[in-house]
Amino acid sequence: MAISNHERINRALATLSQGLYSYIEKEMRIVHGDRWLVVAKSCISEDQTLRRNLEETLQEDVSVLLKLIIKQWDNVFKKKLSNAERALVSELIDVRNKWAHQSRFSTDDTYRALDSMTRIMKAISASELDIIEQQKQDVLKMLSPEKAEEARIKEKLSDVHKLLIFSNEKLLRQALTHRSYVNENPGEGEHNERLEFLGDAILNFLSGEYLYEKFAEKGEDELTRLRSALVEEKQLAKFAIEVGLDFRMRLGKGTIRDGGFQNPNLLSSTFEAVIGAYYLDNNRNVEPLREIVKILFNDASKHIVEIRSNVDSKNRFQELVQAKGITNPPKYVTEQIGGPSHAPEFRAKVLVEGKEKGEGKGKNKKEAEKAAAEDALAKWKNQVY
Rank of each mutant, 00 (worst) to 15 (best):
R173I: 10
I44L: 07
G338V: 08
G260P: 07
A175F: 01
R173H: 03
R119I: 05
D159A: 04
L206P: 10
A368C: 05
A277G: 14
K67N: 11
F166D: 04
S17Y: 00
M121A: 05
G358K: 07
A240L: 01
A216F: 02
A378N: 15
E369Y: 10
Q72H: 04
L172H: 11
N168K: 00
V95G: 06
K253D: 15
K357L: 09
S313H: 12
S116K: 09
F197K: 13
D375R: 15
H178G: 12
E155H: 08
L157S: 07
P329V: 05
T270Y: 00
K98W: 02
R119M: 06
L129C: 11
K365Q: 13
I337C: 07
M249N: 09
S158V: 09
G244Y: 03
E319L: 15
E85G: 08
A12I: 07
T334D: 09
N328I: 01
W36C: 00
D130F: 02
V76R: 06
R347H: 03
I24C: 08
R225I: 10
P264D: 13
E25V: 12
L198A: 09
L195A: 04
V231Q: 02
I131W: 07
D281P: 06
L195D: 13
K170E: 14
I69M: 15
E359Y: 02
S180K: 06
K79C: 15
D74T: 12
N183F: 11
K355Y: 08
F247N: 03
R250N: 12
S313I: 08
H6F: 03
L171T: 12
G276Q: 11
Y210A: 07
T224I: 14
S269A: 13
F247A: 06
S269W: 06
S180E: 15
D375F: 15
K78W: 14
E359G: 06
Q48L: 15
L65Y: 00
D47K: 02
Q137L: 02
K349N: 06
L20M: 05
L68E: 04
N204K: 13
V231H: 00
G325C: 04
D299I: 11
N282V: 08
A273W: 06
N364F: 05
R35F: 12
E217F: 08
P340F: 04
A371M: 13
I295A: 08
L171P: 03
L226M: 13
D200N: 14
Q137P: 03
A372W: 13
P145M: 02
A237Q: 09
H6L: 09
R11E: 14
S22Q: 10
A229L: 11
P330V: 10
F317S: 00
L143V: 09
N75G: 14
S158I: 11
K156M: 13
L37H: 11
R112E: 00
L230Q: 00
G199H: 12
Y332D: 04
I30S: 10
W73G: 09
K26N: 08
Q383M: 09
P329W: 02
K67C: 04
N97Q: 04
I3S: 09
Q59V: 01
S4E: 13
V384W: 05
S313N: 14
G208E: 13
N204M: 06
K357T: 07
I70E: 15
D61I: 09
L66K: 14
K365L: 03
K314W: 01
